[in-house]
Design a protein around this nucleic acid. Structure first.
Lengths: 216, 216
DNA sequence: TATAATTAGGTGATCGTTCAACAAATTAAG
DNA sequence: CTTAATTTGTTGAACGATCACCTAATTATA
């Protein structure tokens, strides 16, 4: 049975993706991936010489499907760009509740687990974050005229991402969306205040911290 | 040498704390803890029947020392409560830079790693978060009169925590404080707007999401 | 002498990984 | 068209290393 060339490979990526999401990278053993995918070890190592190569394939899958999976799914039908942002956050909220807080942001969890030890994973996680921020940035750019003049839409999108990641962390720890909701409510309140400000006032002032360039 | 009763034990907790912080719980092996602490395996299992018991001891240590370590250390000399909040965040920023983004929030990383699989750890992580939020809440309460009437200081403190955790995640991934700074700047901008609002306007409206009680 | 604590050499199980043999599909030769 | 050679993919039993953990003997304290 050598015909379904890529089928075995993609089944491995799919199984690994699910297990890494639920359990993390290190706690997930090769044996478990083999068992749940119904693939033998030799086939796995035919496609992925090391476990880390499989991890890279999973992160590449996320990179290539983040658009389909998150953005369009959660906020495709909403028209107002600002509502799209919070529709996206609500999508994550639904994910939390649907799987009883066992699943969070797959990228975020892997980020903290692997940032120090797996350089290849780190740079792919970085790319995933960039794409996420890109998307939210576009939403804000679409309403740039409603925001205070000179507002950095990308920095604002970054703030949305950090709020989301932090909120997911608390939600999974507390097994409750209470803190998630509280934090997102404050974020919404902030964005609202920016828009209210935008019609009359000027831009928010620049960072107080020491500026530094991004080096990846 | 049985005299220094707690010395062996506390050396184990200290070593485990450091390794869990740098590498995470699962990737840290008992053998490494024994090697770096200079303790034999029998002694470890005399105090901690399982690896998870050692983890619990580490989290209890954080619980009992969070006041000394984080709050007083980073923002003890600052007088204005709002500045204390952002002084605390700056403390984490310094931690990131001092250890070249290898160290983040020890609780946050463990939260994502263990929330699903280790119930005892989860509830202790929860307690640590609570203490952190308590502290920041007190800071906001001290300036409650400057905030819009009816502002939920605890919810605002939660928002600070989520921003911090999310910002640390991005900082460690990007190995840069740029995004950290951008997010914190927006948080500061928000708090400033609340204070500006507080002198004239009313409270921010209630959460849009479905309210839910905290169950731990 | 009773107890608290440490030493150090183990245990079986699981870790990620390897590999020789094999089967199916593709290509090339007759 | 048939057949042989080659490539592509799969099988499943192993490998050594490390995993968390155990325990009998020993030392120190009270």
């Amino acid at each position: 049975m050598t015909r379904p060339s890529t089928e075995t490979r993609s089944k491995l990526v799919e199984t690994a993706r699910d297990l890494f999401h639920r359990q993390g990278y290190t706690p997930t053993g090769i044996a478990q991936i083999l068992k749940e995918s119904g693939v033998n070890s030799g086939s796995l190592y035919y496609y992925f010489p090391t476990k880390e190569d499989l991890l890279v394939a999973v992160l590449e899958w996320y990179r290539d499907h983040i658009g389909d999976n998150l953005i369009d799914l959660h906020c495709g039908r909403i028209e107002d760009p600002v509502e799209k942002v919070f529709g996206l956050l609500d999508g994550y909220r639904q994910l939390l509740m649907m799987f009883e807080f066992e699943l969070g942001c797959p990228i975020g969890a892997l980020a903290l687990e692997l940032a120090n030890s797996h350089p290849a994973a780190r740079s792919l996680i970085l790319v995933n974050f960039e794409q996420w921020v890109d998307t939210v940035e576009q939403f804000f750019r679409a309403v740039e005229d409603r925001l205070p003049e000179g507002t950095d839409c990308r920095a604002l999108a970054v703030h949305v991402l950090t709020t989301m990641e932090g909120s997911m962390m608390l939600a999974r720890t507390y097994r409750s969306t209470t803190y998630f909701d509280q934090s997102v409510t404050h974020l919404r309140n902030y964005v609202d205040s920016l828009i209210a400000q935008g019609s009359t006032w000027s831009a928010p002032k620049q960072p107080a911290g020491i500026p530094e360039s991004l080096d990846n």
